[in-house]
């Protein structure tokens, strides 16, 4: 709890920097607009204004500064503009409306969660296979590690289109990408977790004459819980990123990714920024949720949550 004040100050500093940056970023656009509206602007042609920096322009035309915070199509929207747009599109709309961010959020979240469940399920199965089979360990594990260095996320849009051309549409293509991205963190973390019991603990089970399955259910699986939760947190945010990237350049009509792109293409930066922040909030909520489950589970299992 003692880190609340420092965290808040860091956030305040970021917002302060943002507020300052709004002025030079939007100054040229505001000056152009003001001149068209008949105001006197210091360097009086747009070409002359291009020569000076946004800061210099703000110093010469101090009366235009307030306008940068309320510009319609800003290069960098002010925080309160983004907040207002988010409020309008999250609370101000019916959640079934195409303009509601809740609707778009669900379009993104549903494949993320489905993919995450598939990915973690398969990941845990493969991890069990790797731990109990020497061949799987030796042949698959190196590739699982190498595969994490491959920028597969960059291909997400292509996978969507290929599957779309094969007639697979809707929730499923995006889920495959989300599943793929959560799969390997879970495999790697789970293998580490299932191997975490030390020789002494395994020996103890052997003195009890415990069978392999008993050893799995009562020692290896519980011991892997902290590792599993760490992988869950990595996996769920990777899944969400994957779904969003999958929506970005594929002409998807709904979802956070689609909103970001639509705002960008139709000159409505506020839409993009609101979608970006809503996606950030969703990611934070998901990671936070898993953190909470982790804490409760580990406490009930008698382990220290980290």
């Amino acid at each position: 709890m003692k880190s609340v004040v420092p965290v808040l100050s860091v956030i305040a500093a970021i917002i302060g920097f943002w507020l300052l940056a709004v002025i030079p970023m939007n100054m040229h656009l505001v000056a152009d607009q003001a001149q068209r509206d008949g105001a006197v602007v210091m360097p009086d042609t747009p070409i002359a204004r291009q020569e000076v920096s946004g800061i210099a322009l703000a110093v010469k035309n101090p009366d235009l500064i307030p306008l940068t915070y309320d510009f319609n199509r800003p290069r960098l929207p002010a925080p309160q503009q983004v907040a207002k747009e988010m409020y309008d599109t999250i609370i101000g709309q019916r959640i079934t409306s195409k303009r509601s961010l809740v609707y778009h959020g669900w379009v993104t979240l549903a494949p993320t969660l489905l993919g995450f469940v598939i990915g973690t399920g398969l990941g845990v199965l493969l991890a069990v296979g790797i731990v109990y089979s020497r061949v799987m360990d030796r042949s698959v594990m190196p590739w699982a590690i190498v595969s994490q260095t491959i920028p597969i996320l960059a291909l997400a849009p292509m996978v969507i289109v290929v599957l779309g051309s094969m007639g697979v549409q809707g929730l499923f293509p995006k889920s495959i990408i989300a599943a793929y991205l959560s799969f390997f963190p879970v495999v790697v973390g789970m293998v580490k977790g299932l191997r975490s019991p030390d020789a002494m603990q395994l020996d103890l089970l052997r003195t009890y004459n415990a069978s392999k399955s008993q050893g799995f259910w009562s020692l290896r699986l519980p011991a892997s819980a902290p590792y599993l939760f760490a992988s869950f947190k990595i996996g769920i945010s990777a899944s969400l990123v994957g779904t969003i990237v999958a929506e970005l350049p594929t002409g998807a009509r709904a979802g956070f990714g689609a909103r970001m792109l639509v705002g960008d293409q139709y000159g409505q930066p506020l839409v993009s920024w609101a979608a970006l922040f809503a996606a950030a909030l969703t990611a934070a909520a998901l990671v936070g949720l898993f953190g909470l489950i982790e804490r409760i589970t580990l406490r009930r299992m008698g382990m220290q949550a980290t």
């Binding site: 100050s9 860091v10 996320l153 945010s237 970006l276 934070a284």
Partner: peptide, 20 residues
Amino acid sequence: GILPVGSFMAALPIVGTAPI
């Protein structure tokens, strides 16, 4: 202050800022 904010930011879909 920076540790929690930074680890929070690291989990965000920053790649979405690409169009901007």
